[in-house]
Amino acid sequence: MHIAIGTDHAGYDYKEKIKVLLRALGHEVTDHGAFSDQSCDYPDFIFPVADAVAAGDADRGIVLGGSGNGEAIAANKVKGIRAAVVWDALSAEMSRRHNDANVLSLGQRMIAEADLDLIVRTWLDTSFEGGRHQRRIDKLEAR
């Protein structure tokens, strides 16, 4: 799978750890920045991730920040993106199973580093259930 990833300064450390995990799992990774922990503005790095997923240049995206909230808001401004703020493995699973989230939004200040791998692996490995949930996705896409 091709994963686009991006963050502001507040998610930089986790972004670097996630890139290592993704590559170890055999995924292709495109890093849209930031490339240091120096203060910056998250939309500059989140919009390219969302654009890549929406255009089909990446299969999914992962965005990070301090809380993950602003990053999800930014990503969700791009048509075709369903970014979900996730804080544990169950929320990661449900974001895929019921919402077909194509962008994972994580807050480095909200998630223990020890939980990071399980959250990302769960999100990557969980399939969309479809069924009644597809009807809801169709309504989102029609808007």
Rank of each mutant, 00 (worst) to 15 (best):
A89S: 14
R143I: 12
A101E: 08
K139S: 15
M1G: 15
S91K: 03
L90F: 15
A58C: 14
R96I: 02
H98M: 10
A114D: 11
I62H: 07
K79H: 13
E16D: 14
G6H: 01
T7Y: 06
D41Y: 12
G80Q: 08
F35Y: 15
H98C: 10
R136T: 05
G65Q: 00
G107N: 02
F128C: 14
I73W: 05
I46S: 02
R60L: 13
G70W: 01
H32S: 10
E141K: 10
M110I: 12
N102I: 01
G26I: 01
G131F: 10
S95K: 01
L124V: 00
G68P: 02
L90N: 14
T122M: 05
S95D: 06
I119V: 07
R143C: 14
T122E: 01
F45G: 07
E16K: 13
L25V: 00
V85P: 03
I137H: 07
A55W: 01
G65Y: 00
Y12H: 12
V120F: 05
G33T: 00
D57C: 08
L140P: 09
A74D: 01
I111H: 08
A55D: 13
E93D: 11
D37M: 10
G68K: 01
D138W: 02
R109D: 09
H9C: 09
I3T: 01
A10G: 13
G65R: 01
D125F: 04
A84F: 04
K17T: 06
F128W: 05
V78T: 12
E113F: 07
G131Y: 08
I18M: 12
I137C: 13
A83S: 10
G66F: 00
Y14I: 08
D44T: 03
Q108N: 11
T7G: 11
N76G: 12
C40E: 06
R121P: 04
K139T: 03
P48N: 08
A24P: 04
S39K: 13
E28V: 11
L64S: 02
T122D: 03
G56C: 05
D138G: 12
E71L: 07
A58K: 06
I5Y: 07
I137Q: 08
A83M: 07
D13V: 05
I18Q: 06
M110H: 06
Y14Q: 11
H2G: 13
R23S: 15
A74F: 06
Y12N: 09
H27P: 11
E71N: 07
K19T: 04
A92N: 04
R143E: 11
I18V: 14
R96D: 05
H133C: 13
D117E: 15
R132Q: 08
N99K: 05
F45A: 06
E141I: 10
A54D: 05
A112K: 13
A142T: 02
G6Q: 03
V49M: 03
R97C: 14
M110A: 15
